[in-house]
Amino acid sequence: MVKEIERAGIPVVHICTVVPISLTVGANRIVPAIAIPHPLGNPAFDKDEQKAIRRKIVDKALVALTTEVDGQTVFED
């Protein structure tokens, strides 16, 4: 899906746990997530902490969207 969105002309960032798949299928802006069943949360923490974790990942996704890339780029910490 990620490629088709980009191909349509909309910049897209892919937040996903399995970065290698994202790299194989061809996403250009990739932000690693926590885990497959809860990519943007971590049930080990309470609700507020989870939201803080989520905020951090989304912030990183916004950085990715506003950063020029030449090819596939993973936005690690």
């Binding site: 899906m1 969105i5 349509a8 002309g9 909309i10 910049p11 960032v13 746990t17 996704a61 969207l65």
Partner: peptide, 17 residues
């Protein structure tokens, strides 16, 4: 994506599990 363009969406955050 066509709808997103028509709706004036500037960027997409796609999440995968």
């Amino acid at each position: 994506s066509k709808e997103l363009l028509a709706d004036g969406v500037d960027a997409v955050i796609l999440t995968s599990t």
